[in-house]
């Protein structure tokens, strides 16, 4: 029964759950502040001066 249930789950939903889990994990370990820090300072590499 469990196998039948799992076979009905589309891979898209599995990837969606994996993505949301990864976002939550990234937020919990503080990646957002790193993204914010990078995004609010002029990125010299991005503009070709790095």
């Amino acid at each position: 029964m469990m196998g039948k249930f799992l076979s009905k789950i589309k891979p898209g939903y599995i990837f969606l759950i994996a993505g949301l889990t990864a976002i939550a994990f990234g937020v919990l370990r503080g990646e957002v502040s790193m993204v914010f820090h990078k995004a609010v300072n002029i990125c010299l590499e991005c503009i070709g001066l790095g």
Binding site: G12, F15, L16, A18, G19, A22, G26, G30, E31
Partner: peptide, 19 residues
Amino acid sequence: LDFGFSFYAVGIILAIGAV
């Protein structure tokens, strides 16, 4: 130095792309 892999950014792309 602190992370080595971005779960946050990859997760966003993965979630949006999966939908």
